[in-house]
Design a protein around this nucleic acid. Structure first.
Length: 222
DNA sequence: CAGATCACCTGCTTGC
DNA sequence: TGCAAGCAGGTGATCT
């Protein structure tokens, strides 16, 4: 990969779901941060730095303690990435409804499934379901038209607000400039197990859906 | 084919 | 204090 990309200019940087795509002159670097990956400019090499890209101005490093992330290089984005579902901030309500209606899995599992929509992760699935008043284990196909619309709006609202707050720093997340995000302050259920629900006061509960920790209000979410 | 389960890793917190 | 277990922003392979 080093030999293939050396000397190429960076033509643009975009995002595709949870993937970061760095467009070069003859190919594309496709990056996924996994759980603990970080792309940083001018950060000194550390214990878990796996890639060092020397640029004309500065050094771009990839650091990842858990090593769940990856960097791929090819003529375009990989096929398995290209065929993921639509962007949640671009999809229409009708298309969103069609896709969820086709899923028998718990609605939270469907939201996390990147083939359904691309980009919704564990925090934002929990937060969107809370705002929509929908129980995470309810079958996606069982959602009424009204609930489907509430979930659609909540998902987009949560993502837009999280982006505005530059993400959620639950433990160690920092952006490319090394700054922590601020959305964790606005989480209503994620990481708030046992605390009173912001809406009704009942304690926030925690369960498991699709092998992921799942936070919800048993009283507000049906 | 959709859905469920497990595997991949390190590091931090919790409980005995 | 020490140590084992449990848990964490996510996919991807492999089962049923």
């Amino acid at each position: 990969m080093a030999a293939a990309i050396t000397g190429q200019k960076i033509r643009g940087i975009d995002r595709y779901g949870k993937f970061i795509t760095i467009r070069l002159e003859r190919g594309v670097l496709t990056v996924h941060l996994g759980m603990t990956g970080r792309l940083q400019l001018d950060a000194p090499p550390a214990k878990w730095t796996h890639a060092i890209l020397t640029l004309d101005r500065g050094v771009l490093t990839y650091e990842d303690a858990r090593q769940f992330g990856r960097i791929e290089y090819g003529p375009g984005i990989p096929e398995r990435v290209a065929k993921l579902g639509p962007e949640p901030l671009e999809i229409t309500l009708d298309e969103f409804s069609r896709r969820l209606k086709a899923r028998h899995a718990p609605v939270k599992a469907a939201l996390l499934n990147q083939a359904v929509v691309r980009g919704v992760g564990n925090i934002y699935a929990d937060e969107a379901l809370f705002r929509a008043g929908i129980h995470p284990k309810r079958r996606a196909s069982s959602l009424s038209r009204d609930r489907m619309e509430r979930l659609y709006r909540s998902m987009r609202e949560v993502l837009a607000e999280a982006i505005e707050s530059r993400g959620s720093s639950v433990s160690d997340y920092v952006d490319g400039q090394g700054r922590k995000g601020g959305f964790q302050m606005l989480h209503r259920v994620y990481g708030r197990t046992g605390e009173p629900c912001a809406s009704c006061g009942a304690p926030v509960r925690k369960t498991t859906v699709a092998q992921r920790g799942t936070h919800y209000c048993g009283k507000c979410q049906k």
